[in-house]
Structure formats: structure tokens, C-alpha cells
Design a protein around this nucleic acid. Structure first.
Lengths: 199, 199
DNA sequence: GAGTGTTGTGTACGGGCGTACATATCGGCG
DNA sequence: CGCCGATATGTACGCCCGTACACAACACTC
């Protein structure tokens, strides 16, 4: 037997799992397929991840971190002066542009939580993390709504093979964002209904 | 060999497939499992549906029709005098209330289009059909946005095990709906969100 | 450097799967 | 009636799966 004491073995298996899911979908994920992809023996995958759910949890968590990092790197969300709707629409455009393997992969893992309770906490973390990022620019209720709307828009693009329309996205995202204190469209009234201190 | 010439055989297989997916998810769907559920021999399922994709397409289409019928029955969307946001939030509340098996099933089939191109046209039909319904009350762009937002809200509830908050849903749905023609963006102050005499 | 526990490996078992295919059944047509 | 093609059935093949488990290799401790 060769190659022993490989401290990155576990990590390489996760990476391989992500590649497999990206290529063949969750349906194509098995202990054997990741073993082959990671070039490790079968026993190694079952040793590190007793069940496939364990492997999926690790993969989703990693995809999540990658996404958060990508968003942070883009930087628009840390600058409080950018227009939120424009920034988010641009982010989605960048995300959905070109090769969609990455988006498909992340959504597939994310959506898998629908049927796998083990994934739900991780999925919830993801949504909350993104909402927390947005909360620097708006109230929590609006942040949640923006996350929901972005999810919905992305899904429509991915599920129905429609091209992404950035202007449309910006427009509807902007509608969800209540008028800010500095830019009141309707000077008489400060804010219409939506709470700044609500939820 | 018993039972021959069963004209409803095909339909019964579809019904069985929907029950199987509802209980065990798409992962649990196989020619054998539906055959057992429908109480028909294995060969019968492979005869009527050569591939599982064929079966999924039929199941999704049927779920779609059931949903459209349920929405139509509720009736709120055909009456132009109802407040759209309230009506939609209520619809989602009813849908998500109690046993979620039905919603989970429909979303699972719908989301399966992400990885199965064969399902995408059917998923697209669904979204368009709902958007068309909403178009009786608002413009097409808003209708699309409402569908996206509803999808996103439902998913957040289902994926993260958060309870459905109808007030929140109504609030953000209302934000997406532009002021009606009688209520111009920034006049004195007719009505802010809800279109009473809209479309 | 012997003992020990963690980590990694190879193999085999039982079961479910899609698929193929020979066979059986029956409505409809001439 | 006699045939034929569409419909339905049963069975068997080969593949891939998760799992179990005995064993090998190493780090670490004393």
C-alpha cells in the first residue's frame, strides 16, 4: 500500500466531490465516483465521510465560503456609497455570465436542502450570511427580501433557459429597496410604509 | 397473465410516480418503485415511459395542472378588485400551511429542471402560466418579478426551516407592485401601493 | 524499539438499478 | 374466423451502489 499520512486527503475528497457534482449532478455522486475523481481508494472516501450527506454538507459549506469570498472580493457591497440595486444586478450578471457550471453547482447543492434536512442548517447559514452583508446597506427585512428576489431571479434564468436581463433585475430590486433617508422620491413623506426599525 | 387492456394504466403510473416522489423524493424514483406503487409489473412502467425523464416530465406537467387548478379555484386572481399583494401572500400562506408534502413535491419537480434539460420547457411553461395569470392585474415585468419573489420566499421557508411570515410576504410583494395608473408615482397622495382600479 | 491507536486500504457481499427480450394477450381489420 | 400489430408481462443480465471488515502502515509514547 502506498501513500500514507496524507493530511490533505480529506480536503481533496471534498474538492473532487464538488467537481463530480458540477459535472454529473448530485445524482452522479457516490463514494466510488469521488474516489475515482480524487484518485484515492474507495475505502478512503467512506472513511472520511461515512454517508453521502456528510460529504454534501462539506461540499455545500465549501461552495458557500467560496461564494462569500467572491462577493467580498468584488467589494461593491462593502462600500456604502454604491447603489444597492445596481450592485446586486451587476453581481448576478457576473455570476450568471459565461459558463454556468459554477452557479448550477452552487444552486444544486443549495436546493438539495429541500429534501435533506442535514443540509438545511448550512443553507440557512448561507441565506443569513448574504442577508447580513446586505444589512450594512438596508434594514433586515429588506435584506431578506432582496435575497429571496435574487434567488427567484436566478432560478428563473437557470430553470427556464431564459437569458439574464440585468436591467429588469436592477429595476425590480430597486423597487424592493425602500427610499433611503437621503434620497426621498416623495419629499412630503419621509418613508412610506416599510420599517427601518421593524423586523 | 392477468389484467389486460387497461386504458388508464398510463395515468395510474403517473399518479404513482407523484406519490413516490412525494414520499421519497426524486432520488427514490425508479421504474421498479413506481411499478410497486402502482401495482403494475416492472415491464409496464418501462413500456409506457422508456426513461425516467419521460416519467418526470409527465409528473411535473400533472403537478403543474393541479396547481393551476388550485389557484383558479381560489378565485382571488380572477377578481380584479382584490389587492394583489394580499391575495398572493394569502395564497402562499395557504399553500405552505400544514402538511408541506405537496409543496415540497411540486418544488422538487420544478427545481429538477436545473439539471434535466428535458424538464426545462415544462418548468418554463409553469412560470409563464403563473405570470400570465398575474398579468391580468399588473404589467408583464411586474408579473415576472412577483413570480420570482414568490419562488424566493417559498424557497427560503422550505430550505431553511423558517416559518412563513405572511405579513412580511405581503409587505415585500407590495413593494414590487408599482402604483396603479390612477395612483401616479408622486402626486398629492392617492394610494401608495395597492391598485384598486389597476389593470 | 516495542506497543498502541489512529489512519488508510483492499476486497467481498447483498441488493437495487436500467435494460433487453422472448413471450403472452387482445382489439381490430379483412 | 384468422391474422396482425399494439399492448402488456416476466425474467434474466450486467452494472453500480453502500456497507462491512480484516488488515497494513504509520506517528506517537514510553
Amino acid at each position: 500500500m502506498a501513500r500514507r499520512y496524507d493530511p490533505e486527503r480529506r480536503q481533496r475528497i471534498i474538492d473532487a466531490a464538488i467537481r463530480v457534482v458540477g459535472r454529473q449532478g448530485i445524482a452522479g455522486l457516490s463514494h466510488r465516483s469521488v474516489a475515482a475523481e480524487a484518485d484515492v481508494p474507495l475505502g478512503s472516501t467512506t472513511y472520511h465521510f461515512a454517508t453521502l450527506d456528510d460529504l454534501l454538507v462539506a461540499a455545500l459549506r465549501q461552495a458557500e465560503e467560496g461564494f462569500a469570498k467572491a462577493v467580498a472580493t468584488r467589494g461593491g457591497l462593502t462600500d456604502p456609497h454604491t447603489d444597492l440595486a445596481t450592485e446586486l444586478a451587476g453581481l448576478m450578471g457576473e455570476w450568471l455570465a459565461g459558463d454556468r457550471t459554477g452557479v448550477e453547482l452552487e444552486y444544486e447543492l443549495y436546493l438539495a436542502a429541500l429534501r435533506r434536512p442535514a443540509l438545511r442548517p448550512v443553507a440557512a447559514e448561507w441565506a443569513e450570511e448574504l442577508a447580513a452583508l446586505l444589512s450594512h446597506h438596508t434594514d433586515p427585512l429588506t435584506a431578506r427580501a432582496l435575497v429571496a428576489l435574487m434567488d427567484g431571479i436566478c432560478l428563473q434564468v437557470l430553470l427556464t433557459d431564459t437569458p439574464y436581463d440585468e436591467d429588469y433585475a436592477r429595476e425590480v430590486l430597486a423597487r424592493v429597496i425602500p427610499p433611503g433617508p437621503s434620497a426621498r422620491p416623495c419629499p412630503k413623506r419621509p418613508r412610506q410604509g416599510p420599517p427601518g426599525s421593524d423586523a
